[in-house]
Amino acid sequence: MRAIKGTNFNVYVYPEDHAPPHCHIRYKGQQAESLVGLPLLNLLAGPVPEKSILKTLQANTKRLMKLWEQLNPTSINQTEEQS
């Protein structure tokens, strides 16, 4: 599912995807995708994204994390211990 539409890139988050939590950056033109971990924005595969793209991801971290959890509910332990 497309999560962010940029000028020369799009960001996707998929349902029932594999660990760790991540998003896909798909570039316009003949370029491999970058798989970027959430929320650290660590590179998992593909080329190093431009800083401006990473900044867009950083500004949308909460939205991307929320979307990842909605689409991948089994990857998260929803019970947390309250004090």
Partner: peptide
Amino acid sequence: RTDVPYQTLQKILVSMGYDLSDLAGNLD
């Protein structure tokens, strides 16, 4: 721990005056 909901992370970060986006550090 690997399976932490983002709301839990958010709770921890907000209580220190940070946000989820601070986990990636300063990109500049």
